[in-house]
Amino acid sequence: MRKLSLLIITLISLNSFAQQVAESNPAKELGVWYMYNGSHQISNKFSLKTMAHFRFFEIGDDMQQFIGRLGGNYKFNKNISATLGYAFLNTDRTFEINNGDFNEHRIYEDLNVNHKIASLSLAHRFRAEQRFFESTTGNFFRYQLALSHPINKKWSTYLYNETFFDFDGEAYNQNWFGGGFKYKISDIIKLQVGYQLINVNEVNNFNRIQLGVAISTDHKK
């Protein structure tokens, strides 16, 4: 119970800190991503992957992007799986409230490779995305390396880096680097708090706090 209280205090402190940064320097707001991620096991081999992210330029104000994903995952063995899915995005490109929104549809394919080195878990994700927006098509290739390590039975820490490559423009598109902590409430629910640095086209950097919940269910029985 004390650890859960500590996590709640940490979340409140991060929100307060982000608001102070935004007020002291409006040109460099510290944004926030509110995240839901789900994994729902249907059989020994198949599961559904669900996701909904609400991404804000500032804390609770001026939403930059909503993204929802739904995918089917097939597990080849304990280390390798693949996902085929669909994503819908609504994005504001103008940094202004209710202005410049556009919708995007994506088809994506993931190859996931997981393994361990002692107690350190490593996850490699290779993702191809086909993008459809404003009568335009595009293609991304993304590679993510994620590391996670348990602190105790409830807490774990993680670190990741993901690079985006654009087949239709400059090869390098953007890079996401982040890390944080996860708290296990139960076998079904985990909470997440973290930080992410986004570099776009080697020009712009964006700082984001991540607050999330992950839900895993098992429907095999």
Rank of each mutant, 00 (worst) to 15 (best):
70 L>C: 03
125 R>F: 02
132 F>C: 09
64 Q>Y: 06
134 E>P: 01
116 K>Q: 14
134 E>M: 10
78 K>Q: 10
66 F>S: 00
125 R>C: 03
124 H>N: 14
60 G>L: 10
97 I>A: 14
118 A>C: 13
73 N>W: 03
65 Q>H: 01
107 I>N: 09
111 L>E: 09
107 I>K: 06
115 H>R: 13
71 G>N: 00
106 R>S: 07
92 D>L: 02
79 N>H: 11
91 T>N: 01
115 H>L: 15
108 Y>C: 04
100 G>K: 01
63 M>Y: 05
118 A>L: 15
107 I>V: 14
123 A>T: 14
99 N>Y: 12
125 R>S: 10
89 L>R: 02
61 D>G: 13
119 S>Y: 11
90 N>H: 04
65 Q>T: 07
135 S>R: 08
98 N>F: 11
135 S>F: 09
97 I>W: 12
103 N>A: 10
128 A>H: 11
70 L>A: 04
82 A>L: 14
128 A>S: 12
89 L>Y: 06
85 G>E: 06
83 T>Q: 02
123 A>M: 12
113 V>N: 04
85 G>K: 03
85 G>Q: 00
135 S>I: 06
96 E>H: 06
77 N>K: 04
99 N>L: 10
71 G>A: 06
89 L>G: 05
123 A>C: 07
111 L>Q: 05
103 N>C: 10
126 F>G: 07
125 R>D: 07
72 G>C: 10
114 N>I: 12
84 L>I: 15
110 D>S: 01
95 F>A: 11
94 T>R: 01
129 E>R: 00
81 S>Q: 04
60 G>Q: 09
121 S>K: 13
112 N>S: 07
115 H>G: 15
118 A>W: 15
97 I>V: 15
81 S>R: 00
83 T>P: 06
115 H>I: 14
60 G>T: 04
77 N>Q: 08
105 H>P: 07
96 E>L: 14
91 T>E: 01
131 R>V: 11
134 E>H: 08
104 E>L: 03
128 A>P: 04
108 Y>R: 00
108 Y>L: 00
123 A>R: 14
70 L>V: 15
67 I>L: 09
119 S>L: 13
61 D>Q: 11
83 T>D: 07
74 Y>W: 11
64 Q>N: 12
87 A>Y: 00
96 E>G: 01
116 K>Y: 13
130 Q>S: 08
130 Q>G: 03
102 F>D: 00
103 N>P: 08
